[in-house]
Amino acid sequence: MTPTLSAMVLFIALPIISVFIQSLHIQHQQVIVVSESCGPFGCTKTTSVDTEATEKLRSEQPLGQFNGFNTYTNRSHLAFAEIVEAWNSMPDTRTFLDRVFNLPFYKALAFTLTYTLVVTPLVILLGLAIAVGVNALPKIIRGPSIFVSLLPFLVTPLVGSLILFWMVDGDGIIGATLQLIFDDPSLSLKASTPLMWIMLMVYGVWHTLPFSFITFYAGLQTVPQNTLEAAMIDGASKWQAMTYVVVPHLMPLVYFVTLMLLMDNFRVFEPIVSFSAQAHAQSLSWIIFNDLREAGNPLFGSAGATSMMTIIGVVILLTPVLIRTWREFNRRVK
């Protein structure tokens, strides 16, 4: 028991603290030396990077310089200065918003939130509909249809999104067909921001739909048949039985699925790598990844600041659901 608990502390709490400390620092500037060389035509100053001194500084203080909360407020994060500037110089709200959503952090936030808020309800509604549909199928077909449905959910996200990307790309079967239908050979995922957003969300629905479908399908097996029959005898139509008996019975499951989907969708990351979508859509996870990947010299401070804000975002997103879980839990314990 103790090893597990201490491992949990070690690997949950410490990284978060470490991320926080990193986010307060900034990588060292390169040490610049100015040397003056004097020749017959006067003196010239040359500046050069003192690699040795830079290396020494970096290895002495791997964290970098202390920077307080400045990383949080700089241009690539919360960008207070730029927003104030945009607010003061812009005549109307539209151009102001345009400017704000061109800042990297807000751009990523906008995509992440849109993705989460579009995909989650879609997946819940479609999942419920398909679960009801499959439940009406003869028993023999149910097994295979669940097998087929599981595939998009269990496939590695990076691999699954690649499979879709190759189909919807300009040369792929769906992409080429779309070009034919709209008679526009320049119509391509790589060139169109709206199309890219739509395709990323289509991937999101494709990938997570099985989860909601299977959970609801399992829930449908536990619907009390007596109540259902009573409703039918009292003259309820199928639709009424659905909305007044089945859906209320599934409500706890809807909360559960919503919680899971919010968490999964908020961290959308792999499809952006697979679709090479960074020119059109970036998510919070992706900008952290991008900071860390910075060849040879990862921007730990910047990644840390975005990570902290992402964690805060997750907490805000989950608070309503968490409060509900806490209440339920207490009720059950009492």
Partner: peptide, 12 residues
């Protein structure tokens, strides 16, 4: 938690 947020804590 997006796993990538934890990774940035482990890397350094």
């Amino acid at each position: 938690m997006p796993h990538i947020t934890l990774v940035s804590g482990y890397m350094l």
